[in-house]
């Protein structure tokens, strides 16, 4: 009997701990409205040109490792992710192919041939435009404060569960676009990407997604 009560208490605590409400945020009652607005904005978004700041946090390091770069996106599946500092690294996704350029070396990968790259590709593209909220592989919990919606996404698919514990998104209440994207790994180390100086629907420079 005692063991059952203990198990019950642990299970209840577990639920609260796993989906703990973030500080300063309250749970959203009408999630359908957010989904509708985010999808509306996503459907009207054809291109994104934004700078980003990426912070990698490792439990054993006091300092975060910060890198900066530029991200270009064009509907439906063109992406250019260029790291400028402290290292140079270019990743282009275009027509089912992935190009990685690191200094003078280039690697081309057919996205179809790699399940892992395909899953990550879907995740990145869907995160930028907010349609990650519609992905059946993730279950979403919504919170809000005056400025933002905070969304916690929990992988339901075994493939993603091997790499990712949760994904957290901050969505601006001004324009319903993603401002911050945080991936928390199984070890609780995380990567936070903040999008700054975002320009929506401006023509992408010619050659932005070319492999040359």
């Amino acid at each position: 009997m005692q063991k059952s009560i203990f198990t019950f208490v642990i299970a209840i605590l577990g639920v609260f701990l796993v989906h703990a409400q973030p500080e300063g945020f309250t749970e959203v009652a009408d999630t359908a409205y957010i989904l509708q607005k985010v999808n509306e904005v996503a459907s009207q978004t054809n291109t994104i040109n934004t700078e980003f700041v990426q912070e990698k946090n490792l439990a054993f390091l006091y300092e975060k490792i910060t890198s900066k770069g530029i991200l270009l996106y064009q509907k439906p599946e063109k992406l250019r992710l260029e790291y400028i500092s402290p290292f140079s690294y270019l990743l282009i996704m275009n027509d089912g192919e992935l190009l990685i350029r690191n200094d003078d070396k280039e690697i081309k990968i057919a996205l179809e041939s790699s399940t892992m790259f395909n899953e990550i590709n879907d995740l990145i593209i869907n995160s930028i435009q907010g349609s990650i909220l519609n992905m059946p592989e993730l279950s979403a919990f919504f919170y809000e404060n005056d400025e933002s919606f905070f969304v916690q996404l929990w992988p339901q698919q075994e493939g993603l569960k091997k790499y990712i514990k949760t994904i957290e998104l901050y969505i601006s209440k001004k324009d319903y676009t993603v401002t911050d994207f945080k991936v928390i790994e199984l070890s609780d180390d995380y990567t936070l990407i903040k999008f700054v100086n975002k320009i929506i629907n401006e023509e992408i420079p010619v050659g932005g997604f070319n492999f040359q």
């Binding site: 054993f60 890198s67 992710l81 290292f87 690294y89 991936v183 790994e185 070890s187 180390d189 990407i193």
Partner: peptide, 14 residues
């Protein structure tokens, strides 16, 4: 400590 992680932040080994 030795940690490898992808440029986009995904940890590979520690």
């Amino acid at each position: 400590r030795l940690v490898f992680f992808s440029e986009a932040g995904l940890q590979l080994m520690e």
